[in-house]
Structures are given as C-alpha cells and as structure tokens.
Design a protein around this nucleic acid. Structure first.
Lengths: 170, 170
DNA sequence: CGTCACGTTGAACATTCTCAACCCGAGTGG
DNA sequence: CCACTCGGGTTGAGAATGTTCAACGTGACG
C-alpha cells in the first residue's frame, strides 16, 4: 500500500493503538530509527507546533492512500504501473536518489505485482508492453525511463498530486 | 472511498492543509455540523486528551482505508460487494440504524459501482448473483440479508476488523 | 402522457488470471 | 569444476472475470 524511501517515516503514532493492523518490511538493508512511545507522547503534549506538523503529515499520507485507492479502482493495469513508476521516480529524485539516467528500484516483480493488485505474470506482460512502447524499462533492479512524456501520458500522471501544501500559519 | 453514517465525523483536521484533495457529498438529506478552524486549533492546543483521541480516530480511519485498498486489490467483485454490505450492515447496527429485518441503504447502483471500482452493469449482475444465491438482496434502497452466514462466507468477512481498540492510557 | 433517472438484460469484446512450462544467473555441496 | 537447486523472470494457451454498447423495462414526477 506504500513504499517508503530513505528519510520517510511511518506509523509515528501507532503507540496510540492497542495493536498494529498492518506490517512493514524492509526490502533492502536499511537503517531504521525508532522513537519510543513515551517520547512521542511527550512531543505531542509539549510541542504544539511539532504536533501540528505531524497531524499534517498524517493528512498527507491519507491523501496518498486515497490516490492509491483511486488507482486501484479506476486505472487499467498499465496505467497503474506507469503511474507508480512516475511517483517513485519523482519521489526518489526529490531526495537526490536518482543516479541518471536510471533509478535503483530493488523491487521484485512479485512484490510490485502484489502492491499493484495484479498477478506477477500479468505485471510481467505489462512491463514488456511498456518496454516495447519505449516508455520505460525495469530490469535488474533498475528503472530506466526512456520516454518521460510517453510514460506520463500513459499514466495520466499529474505531478501536482505529490505536492500537497500546508496552510500558512495564521 | 468511504461512506459516512449518522454520527460519523470526517476531515476534522483539513484546516491544516491549504486545500482539500477530495470532496464529500450528502446522498440523503442530512444535518451537518461544522467546526471552524480556530475552534479545532484551540482544542488541539489546549485539550491534550481530546487531541490524542482525535489522533487515534485518524489512525482508525487510516486502517479503514487500508482495508479498502486490500479490498480493491485482492478481492473479486462479488467478494467486494458482499464485504461492503457486511461492513455497512454492522456499522449501521452499531448505531441502532437497522430496522429488522432490513436496512435502509439509499445508494444507487451507480454510486455503489463507482465506490467499488466496477461498472454499474457488472454491479447489477453481481447483485443478481447474490440474490439468486440467497445471500442478500438490495432493492429499492433497502438491504435485506437473507443468509448472513453465506454472505459472510462469500465476503470473507472478519468481524474483528471494525473493532480496532485503543491502547489503555498508561 | 412524456420524460427522466435508475435498473435490467444480451452479446461481443477486452482484460486479467490460471496453469504450466521453460530460461537464466547466483549460490551450494560434492 | 560441475551438477543441482532455487528464486526470479518470461512465454503460451485457455478460461474466468469484467467492460462496452445498446436496448428495453419501470416507477416517479411534472
């Protein structure tokens, strides 16, 4: 339902619930920082500004999930794939993770297919289709966008949806 | 992506963002209460307990959205329909809204199909299938569950997923 | 009585899945 | 060094699932 990249945080507030309703996995070696419950409680209670910022972050995450739902419900599989690739590419670029011309994406087709709600076999064919169309190719853990415009057009990607802005402090 | 019932709240915190990334509609006449931004800010800042509770509510909503994503990605359409009906039924019952033996569900097939990510035509056929199977029937805005067990079984419904609990105050 | 929104149905088609096979490169034990 | 295995990736063929388009029914409402 989501892919995290270096610097992303997740589940900052699970401490409030009795149990997790989902799980998180690393798919590469990773350094993971944790914040214990007491610390989070303290931050929330004593730093109103930070608390507010965390609320906002939460809302933005929710927006991303809504986008994901739309993707699943309304987009054909090839659009879904293209869209996710656009998103991952932009996010990676925003944190300086793209080593032009390609981006390291250590995702097995199995994983991707699952995330996108389709069969590995079908994903494979879709990737092939995108490759043949000359839009992008994903091979040996590396994403190469050969024709950005075409990819964006297939995906119906709107760059703006990643940039949810905050209301200026009143 | 969600259906609200009497007493449900939504978007308590949109005040934090510069713009909405989604919309809300009434599908029946409804009384809607609004809380203005200043009041919400004040509550968040001065009532830590309430703020915490609202965080939790937010997390629970998020869980619901995750469930929705799972539904879209992994369930066949008949399962999706059955699952949503189970959920709506239980939620309605929890707030005393079920007038046995049936539940008023003022949802057009158009609306439902859109929410479930399928064609109105196909939804219609799925509903017919469920009716013929004797599990439930949805007609003239009223949901009648004729064989709860069968419906639950078709849906693969786990009653527990609605009852996310909070961590007891430490 | 006409209109309009919604529901229902059929038939052809497109999309996606299933199952099964095969390929390949990286590790592993003999 | 070689055969083996194993986790991906790729491909084909047939079947299931879902869509499209177009028609018709039906009740509410002016």
């Amino acid at each position: 339902m989501a892919f995290l990249m270096p610097g992303d945080s997740c589940d900052l507030h699970v401490g409030l619930l009795a149990e997790m309703d989902h799980s998180i996995q690393t798919i590469t070696p990773a350094s993971v920082a944790t914040i214990d419950r007491e610390a989070m409680d303290a931050i929330r209670d004593t730093h109103r500004g930070v608390a507010k910022a965390m609320y906002s972050a939460q809302l933005i995450d929710e927006g991303a999930m809504r986008a994901w739902i739309t993707s699943m419900g309304r987009r054909a599989s090839i659009e879904r794939v293209a869209h996710l690739m656009c998103e991952l590419y932009l996010r990676a670029r925003n944190i300086g993770l793209v080593s032009e011309p390609s981006l390291a994406l250590p995702l097995s087709q199995l994983l991707l297919a699952d995330a996108l709600g389709m069969t590995p076999v079908h994903l494979n064919r879709v990737l092939k289709e995108l490759r043949i169309a000359g839009a992008m190719s994903l091979q040996r853990g590396s994403l190469l966008i050969t024709d950005p415009e075409k990819l964006v057009q297939i995906a119906g990607f709107d760059e703006n949806y990643l940039h949810r802005r905050l209301r200026r402090a009143s």
